[in-house]
């Protein structure tokens, strides 16, 4: 079932880098799974561990890369991720969103997001928020100072210690999806008659598209 969020309060990890691609978020060897869960331990695998990861491995014996920010004790119990430009670029793998969520992230805040990743977030209930470079810098600092960050989705505002940090924009429907965990397919299927009518018209005009392939 999809996650829902209306108000989130938590601490953040500052991943101060541009162009974090989905290959980094979850390396390809873990895409062999036919499930949507279980990806959390391998989130950012190549950065988090000093050895090469593979599916089905006993995580507890792996060498941890202490330098990587997710492994620093200071940032334990963070569930907001802050990054920079073009987050989630590259491969369309929805596994990237599944791993961020499986690890425990509820919100990702960045200067900008790649299109497919951004869509994938909403389809699962991970809240992506795009902010200006200045606002991101403030949040990166707050994250480093371990301040609690509050995200009020209803009013589209981010706070910390009663100070307003930023307002953010979000498409109203997408907001509703995150607030209520809507069943997208169910919603689209309420338009079934429109789809059928359109399909009939298209078949009449361009019948070759509907040729049976067998």
């Amino acid at each position: 079932m999809k996650n829902t969020i209306n108000y989130h309060k938590g601490q953040a990890i500052p991943l101060d880098r541009d162009n974090i691609d989905t290959d980094q978020i979850i390396p390809k060897q873990f895409l062999k799974s036919i499930k949507k869960s279980g990806f959390g331990p391998n989130l950012f695998d190549a950065w988090r561990y000093e050895d090469e990861g593979f599916p089905g491995q006993d995580i507890s014996v792996r060498k941890i890369n202490k330098k990587f920010i997710l492994n620093q004790e200071k940032y334990d119990n963070s569930d907001i991720l802050i990054s920079k430009k073009n987050f989630g670029c590259g491969s369309s793998r929805e596994h990237a969103v599944w791993s961020l969520m499986d690890y425990g992230f509820k919100v990702v805040i960045a200067e900008s997001f790649a299109d497919i990743f951004y869509n994938n977030c909403f389809n699962n209930g991970l809240l992506p928020i795009a902010l200006s470079p200045n606002e991101i810098q403030i949040l990166l600092n707050l994250a480093e100072a371990r301040k609690v960050i509050e995200i009020d989705l209803l009013n589209q505002v981010i706070f910390s210690e009663d100070n307003e940090i930023a307002n953010f924009s979000i498409d109203p429907f997408r907001k509703k999806c995150i607030l209520e965990g809507l069943d997208e397919i169910g919603l689209s299927l309420t338009h079934s008659s429109d789809i059928k009518e359109f399909e009939k018209k298209r078949q009449k005009e361009s019948p070759w598209i509907f040729n049976d392939k067998k």
């Binding site: 929805e94 969103v97 497919i116 869509n119 994938n120 397919i185 789809i195």
Partner: peptide, 18 residues
């Protein structure tokens, strides 16, 4: 266009992309 897995399911079920 490339799509994510939720969208794959959506297209399978509705023949449409939202």
């Amino acid at each position: 266009m490339g799509i994510g897995t939720s969208e794959v399911e959506h297209v399978l079920a509705t023949q449409c992309l939202k």
